[in-house]
Write a protein that binds this DNA or RNA. Sequence first.
RNA 1: GGUCGGAUGGCCGAGAGGCUAGGCACGGGUCUGCAAAACCCUCUACACCGGUUCGAAUCCGGUUCCGACCUCCA
Length: 489
Amino acid sequence: MSSLQLYNTYTRQNEVFRPLHNNHVGLYVCGPTVYGPPHLGHVRGPIVFDVLRRFLEFKGYKVRHVRNITDVGHLVGDGDEGEDKLGKQARLEQIEPMEVAQTYTVAYNEMCRLVNVLPPGIEPRASGHIIEQIEMIEAIMSAGLAYEVNGSVYFDVLSYAKTKDYGKLSGRILEDLLAGAGNEARELEGQEEKHNPNDFALWKKASPEHIMQWHSPWGKGYPGWHIECSAMSRKYLGDVFDIHGGGMDLLFPHHESEIAQSTACTGHNPARFWVHHNMITINGQKMAKSLNNGILVDELFSGKHALLAQAYSPMTLRFFILQAHYRGTLDFSNEALQAAEKGLQRLMNAADLAPKLPISDSSEYSVSDIEAACERCMNDDMNTPQVIAQLFEAARVCNSAMDGKIKLNSDNVKALNNLFNTWLHDILGIQAEEKGNEEALDGVMQMLLAMRADAKANKNYALSDEIRNKLTDLGFSIKDGKDGSSWSL
RNA sequence: GGUCGGAUGGCCGAGAGGCUAGGCACGGGUCUGCAAAACCCUCUACACCGGUUCGAAUCCGGUUCCGACCUCCA
């Protein structure tokens, strides 16, 4: 068995993955800041890392998957005077900040459930780890790499960079950062307190009206944006763990800061592999408020958005995302989504057919080749599009066998079933859509199909067509085969 | 402005010096009372200009365009 290779952003190359501790894998993924309903940008990360987790488990590793919830606010830029992001939203809605966080945490998790993302083993909240964050800040101060000014604590990037490699992850050169291209345009609160504009906040002093604040050795305040991931990953996975994942937009400053903080505190880059997925676009453009093309996940599922021609199911979304490699940008459009919807249907039909396949004595096809190819593709930096291409090959074999065009012996039929179960369902996490009360429905449908068969036998095609057309209108599709009719929704 | 990625057939999307994925759409066929589904066939692409090579979509140089990041971002 060949081994998994992952692209490590830190070294900018594919590396063979070997866990640090025997067969245990520590996986930390940056979760959402819960101040708004989940949009399409939120859905790629959970799915990508869910597939990674499933694949690692398939390979026999025991995975501790940690995905955080950031529910302490970040600073809001652009003249909002440093108001807490969560606090700001709360004031608009006239509810408690924690109510906002709870509402959108639930919404995020519901989205994950719908797209069949397995719940992470640990889902720590930043607000529940204030003490750990304070302890980490103290350790960084003890190391002489942070300083307090007026109740706020800042990370001293220049001192850190004297002995450590600051900027390696994101490919940034400190001299360029110091030159400050772009910096002058941004006026963040507290900028004048910093020794250097590139220093970042570990702890921020809170003004009295600031809603979310905690006691600390430096007075009342709240943690800086980056420290929560450092503190929580360390707490649950240790000073050094296997994989840290997130979106490419987090490369700088978030992950760069995490590396600096953790290194200042423990002496180590916390993660051996830094894995980043790329962004999504809508009709070729970045999804942005100013472009008015932001689509919520719920809007995709209901089809209620000006840019959407129809509703798309959660599984269509998942399949669509996995049809592109995780490190490339992924463009959402109606055409692309519709193509994914149909392709998915084809694959699911074949998977449903697999258990009913006729068995021959001889075999004209070796399914094990497909299986080997699937693993080879996944090992190659999680190439899910190629895995899916293999599964389509399997679907063709399946359909051909069903049509009697090729013969498969019992071993190959078994392998085909196993292929769909393992690769389509277990690893890619593609399942049949949720359907209610299928047995009762099937009973009714069988009755209608029997009536239609009678009508056909009596050459009453007007009636048989009427039955079929009305069912079609209701969303059922009827297929007439040699051995009677079948239905699907 | 700086840094880093891209540009693949009607649409999406892999690949990465010769074997030229896959899906969807289109067209032809088999099957069918009709239809749907399924199957078979068809569609041969890599932004532009040079160069290296027996051979380049893939390597090198240049050009154009697009995108991301540069302390809100998934």
